[in-house]
């Protein structure tokens, strides 16, 4: 091995360059390296998982849209327009896939790397910082959400299921939704210690998927249940995407955006604080 030991090594020079910057002890400006790792992991091991995340909403669309849809006929979109059943459920399926992908990445994946693979422990022995790790992992969940959203939108648009041009904004909306779920998911995961607790957290995704206005309007519920459902993040997500894809544009949509902005802000600040403590304790 070449012995450049007398001289400071390249890694030292790189680390010293940042030493005077703000947050130098928790952030090395290398969150992108986490992306690089994730790319390789997908290539080497986890491509079936990634692929399944992509085809899942398409399967639902085929089964319910083409299978159940004709039995139902047109339905009201909740804003006074009658649309085909496929058009009604497609936006909610996009919102759900954004939620599932981001939440899975930031809960199970993060939990495994934290407690079993000790992947973060290995990272923390290098000159990378905990903030790099948090940003890199959440960023990856978002990138995955973006790719899924583009794929799904390409399919539904080519099937003629997106009546409004505003629908293009469903793609950034899906990323916003993914960001909200990834941040909160990571914050929750940082508190959990066992697989049983993890099961409880992810258990709630299924009923939320089934009952949040995904397959039928929430107006079928008694008022008090409707109000509870409207407070859930998936209804907020589904309604946002549906309004964009169907062209029901109003300033009311900003409330949905605000909802996710709060999820992101709270989730991120809790996650970064907790992760720094977990890594450095």
């Amino acid at each position: 091995m070449s012995s450049s030991l007398a001289l400071p090594n390249e890694a030292v020079a790189i680390a010293e360059k940042r030493s005077t910057k703000r947050w130098a002890n928790i952030y090395a400006g290398r969150a992108r390296v986490l992306f690089e790792r994730s790319f390789r992991v997908v290539k080497t091991s986890s491509w079936p998982v990634v692929l399944s995340g992509f085809v899942e909403p398409v399967f639902y669309l085929v089964a319910f849209g083409s299978g159940v849809g004709p039995l139902i006929g047109d339905v009201s979109d909740g804003y006074g327009h009658m649309v085909s059943y496929s058009v009604y459920i497609a936006p909610a399926l996009l919102a759900t896939s954004a939620m599932n992908g981001a939440f899975y990445d930031s809960t199970w994946n993060v939990f495994f790397k934290m407690h079993y693979g000790k992947t973060y422990q290995a990272m923390m022995a290098t000159s990378i910082g905990p903030l790099d790790v948090a940003l890199g992992e959440i960023g990856w969940a978002l990138l995955r959400g973006l790719v899924y959203a583009i794929g799904f939108m390409t399919i539904v648009a080519s099937l003629g299921l997106v009546p409004s041009l505003w629908g293009i904004l469903a793609i950034p909306a899906a990323v916003l939704i993914a960001f909200g779920f990834a941040s909160v998911g990571m914050a929750i995961t940082s508190y959990l210690k066992s697989f049983q607790q993890m099961d409880w957290v992810t258990f709630w995704l299924l009923p939320m998927f089934l009952f949040s206005g995904t397959f039928y309007p929430v107006s079928v519920y008694p008022d008090w249940i409707t109000n509870i459902v409207r407070a859930l993040p998936l209804w907020q997500a589904a309604d946002l995407v549906r309004c964009l894809m169907l062209g029901n544009i109003s300033t009311a949509l900003l409330w949905h955006v605000l909802y996710f902005a709060v999820m992101i802000a709270v989730g991120l600040s809790v996650a970064t604080r907790r992760l720094t403590r977990l890594f450095m304790r």
């Binding site: 090395a28 390296v33 690089e36 992991v41 080497t44 990272m123 290098t126 000159s127």
Partner: peptide
Amino acid sequence: ELKVHENLYIYGRYFG
């Protein structure tokens, strides 16, 4: 989740 040589590569990347 990575191969042997990738373990070395990514670890090096953590150092920049």
